[in-house]
């Protein structure tokens, strides 16, 4: 099987060789349940090294993190082992191949090392995974909810969450902390600050030199 797309920009690496290298370096094994492309399972302790190697190895060049997806195997037919898994979907823009790295996460020790320093997008992707599944990413600089509101309790994509439970939001979540930090970084300053929780906007002005 080759995971290289029909028209690679440069010569890609066959899947067998990637598998052999990953097995040798990180004791990764292929996930027999993968339906498309190539999915490998690695241990939590070697996850960061494995992902960093996949990114930096010139012959693989997995420079894009497409997504970080949580999986809850509670009540999954025939499943044994830890309840959760997290899948990192990688893509190489040079070779156009895709690769999925899966790591199993135990319910009692529901945490993984963060990779926000390897790919910037992991910042939000890990926040979403924590929000929806309750999987903690250690070392994440701002691990707060991304999709659900700040008064939400629980993690709705866990299979034991009662999906019809409604949780009202009483105070608006302005979500401007990151915007403010970025605008400050670009040389803007806040000139007017309304009641942020009520939805009043911040007014910015470019700092005069």
């Amino acid at each position: 099987m080759s995971i290289v797309a029909a028209k690679p920009l440069e010569a890609g690496v066959p899947a067998e060789r990637i598998l052999a290298q990953l097995a040798e370096r990180f004791a990764a094994v292929r996930d027999g349940r993968d339906r498309w492309g190539l999915t490998v399972t690695v241990a939590r302790e070697r996850l960061r090294d494995c992902l960093q190697w996949l990114r930096d190895e010139p012959s693989l060049h997995c420079d894009t993190l497409l997504d970080v997806a949580g999986v809850d195997y509670l009540a999954f037919p025939g499943h044994r082992g830890p309840r959760f898994a997290v899948v990192y979907l990688l893509k190489s823009t040079r070779f156009r191949h895709r690769l999925a790295v899966k790591v199993e996460v135990d319910e009692d020790d529901c945490a993984l090392p963060s990779v926000h320093d390897l790919w910037k997008i992991a910042d939000w992707a890990e926040r979403e995974t924590w929000d929806q599944y309750g999987i903690v990413f250690r070392g994440h600089p701002n691990l707060k909810r991304l999709l659900n509101h700040h008064e939400f309790s629980g993690h709705p994509l866990r299979k034991d969450y009662p999906c019809q439970k409604r949780q009202k939001l009483s105070v608006n979540d302005p979500m401007v902390d990151q915007l403010e930090a970025r605008l400050r970084q670009r040389g803007y300053e806040v000139v007017e600050r309304g009641e942020v929780s009520a939805g009043d906007p911040l007014t910015f002005r470019e700092k005069s030199p």
Binding site: H149, Q167, L169, N172, D173
Partner: peptide, 10 residues
């Protein structure tokens, strides 16, 4: 959505 609801109310 519930996240939008306070905005609509306002």
């Amino acid at each position: 959505t519930y996240k939008q609801a306070p905005i609509l109310r306002r």
